[in-house]
Amino acid sequence: MLKISLKQGQYVNIGDNIRVVYVGGTGNHGRLMIDAPKEVKIARSTVEQNPERRKDTYYPEPAISKEAQDEIKKILWNERMKAETKKDAERMSH
């Protein structure tokens, strides 16, 4: 277990894709911001031992299908190509 002290605005990275930022606090209460992928389950500890019964437990959304991911990639690629074509046309006209 790691125990650290942080000042407001300082953060801890966990692995390559999770960041915990200390945003301040008073007395015995501290506020944290946690930036993590949706598939990472995050639960606050409380007296309740069953996190599924907690309203403040984060449950990730189901992953989108491979087909939907491919469609999104196509749309983004097409938009990028349109923007590059527009830039090229503007350069040629000047």
Rank of each mutant, 00 (worst) to 15 (best):
L2G: 02
L2T: 00
L2F: 01
I4Q: 01
I4P: 01
S5H: 00
L6A: 03
K7I: 02
G9Y: 04
G9D: 03
G9N: 02
Q10F: 09
Y11H: 01
Y11K: 01
V12W: 08
N13Q: 15
G15R: 14
N17R: 15
N17Q: 12
I18L: 00
R19Y: 15
R19G: 14
R19W: 15
V20N: 07
V21Y: 07
Y22F: 15
Y22R: 13
Y22C: 13
V23D: 03
V23A: 09
G24W: 05
T26N: 14
T26C: 11
G27D: 03
G27S: 03
N28C: 05
N28K: 13
N28L: 04
H29F: 09
H29A: 07
R31D: 06
L32F: 12
L32Q: 10
L32S: 08
L32P: 08
L32H: 12
M33I: 04
I34P: 05
I34N: 11
D35P: 09
A36K: 06
A36T: 01
K38I: 03
K38S: 05
K38T: 02
E39I: 04
E39G: 06
K41V: 15
I42E: 01
I42M: 02
A43D: 04
T46H: 01
T46C: 02
V47D: 05
V47M: 08
V47K: 07
V47G: 06
E48N: 11
P51G: 10
P51M: 14
E52L: 14
E52R: 13
R53Q: 15
R54E: 00
R54Q: 00
R54F: 01
T57F: 12
T57Y: 13
T57E: 09
Y58A: 12
Y59T: 06
P62E: 11
I64G: 05
E67L: 02
E67D: 01
A68D: 03
Q69F: 04
D70M: 15
E71V: 03
I72P: 08
I72E: 14
I72V: 15
K73C: 08
K73E: 11
K74Q: 08
K74W: 06
K74S: 06
L76Q: 14
L76C: 10
W77L: 13
W77R: 14
W77S: 14
N78R: 12
N78D: 14
E79M: 02
R80P: 00
M81T: 04
K82C: 10
K82G: 10
A83L: 08
A83F: 06
A83K: 05
E84T: 00
E84F: 00
T85F: 06
K86G: 00
K87C: 05
D88P: 04
E90C: 09
S93L: 08
S93C: 08
H94W: 07
H94S: 06
H94P: 02
